[in-house]
């Protein structure tokens, strides 16, 4: 498979960051194969935007190098730009221009010929379901529609690579699903997509995922592989009264701690069967009512928490 995006030892220290402090991006390596839907997952301030800005030639790295489609981001920005679609994190279309005007502008500026323009724009309007809103100013669009328009604008010149910075942040759950469905369609057309997100659950939709934290890549792999590689299993438990449940779970040392998700507790444990038995016994002695007690699938969130804890233990 051809490599579409390749970053080696990328480091970025902003000039406003104090000397000697942890850089925003710390020796990051990244390999994205052509045609992949690649997820860059990390919490706020992890360095996602910094990395995507460097890859999209918006900003220069402090050191290290990166190539897109074989072109160097520092020296061959022009070649990259004509083949790249980029959607920044913040809304970055012209608020006073209509949907149609924004699309036409980005088509023109990217050199899409007039002959091709109409059919391409119609196709994208259809794709983003914006056909009925062509004359609405983009400042008057809802959050989800803005993101879809931004996506359409980034695709108007049929790029080979699409870089998306948190396309689903600040968008309602329905629009989030819709956006991911659109990305799946984009992939089908053979475009390589690198997308960043702070939502761990979204990582499951990607072919490959890199988890980024404090400027470093903690791990890379397909979501299923990452989950399989973990040295623990998950036990999910729900019981009333909740105070008693917590007391019981606190006393059980399953190996990797627990966290609350909604009204359930998730324990990361080495021996799921043994732990389940102990919890059951202890809860019953305490007179609690158990409604759920079972082994559950490992989620990206669990992977992330485990990796961050490991990282912190090392430091």
């Amino acid at each position: 498979m051809a490599i579409s995006v390749e970053a080696l030892l990328l480091t970025k220290q902003y000039s406003s960051q104090p000397k000697g402090s942890r850089p925003a991006l710390d020796a990051v390596d990244l390999h994205v194969e052509a045609g992949q839907l690649y997820g860059l997952v990390g919490p706020d301030g992890a360095g996602k935007t910094t990395l995507l800005r460097i890859l999209s030639t918006v900003m220069n790295p402090t050191s290290g190098s990166a190539r897109l489609m074989g072109y160097d981001v520092n020296k061959q920005a022009e070649q990259i730009r004509s083949r790249l679609g980029y959607m920044p994190q913040a809304f970055s279309l012209y608020p006073d221009l209509s949907v149609m005007e924004n699309l036409r502008f980005f088509a023109d500026i990217n050199g899409v010929s007039h002959g091709k323009q109409k059919s391409r724009i119609d196709e994208l309007l259809e794709f983003a379901r914006l056909t009925d809103f062509t004359s609405r100013r983009s400042e008057n669009l809802s959050g989800g529609m803005r993101k879809k328009l931004a996506l359409a604008c980034a695709l108007v010149h049929e790029p080979e690579i699409l870089l998306l910075d948190e396309p689903t942040t600040g968008v309602d759950p329905v629009s989030r699903r819709e956006l991911w469905q659109l990305l799946a369609k984009v992939i089908q057309q053979g475009v390589t997509v690198l997308v960043s997100t702070p939502y761990m659950d979204e990582a499951e939709r990607c072919n490959m995922v890199s988890i980024i934290y404090q400027g470093r890549i903690l791990t890379t792999g397909a979501p299923v592989d990452l989950e399989r590689q973990m040295p623990f299993r998950i036990v999910e438990v729900k019981a009333k009264p909740r105070g008693t449940l917590r007391q019981v779970v606190d006393k059980i040392d399953g190996g990797y701690g627990w966290r609350a998700v909604g009204d359930r507790l998730r324990l990361s444990v080495v021996d799921p069967a043994g732990v389940q038995a102990r919890i059951k016994a202890n809860l019953e002695t305490a007179g609690a009512q158990i409604s759920i007690l079972r082994e559950a699938r490992i989620l990206m969130e669990d992977v992330f928490i485990y990796l961050v804890e490991q990282q912190e233990k090392q430091a």
């Binding site: 030639t57 918006v58 730009r81 913040a90 980005f106 500026i109 990217n110």
Partner: peptide
């Protein structure tokens, strides 16, 4: 930021 990545 968006303009920078265009060929202009």
């Amino acid at each position: 930021e968006q303009l920078i990545v265009t060929p202009v």
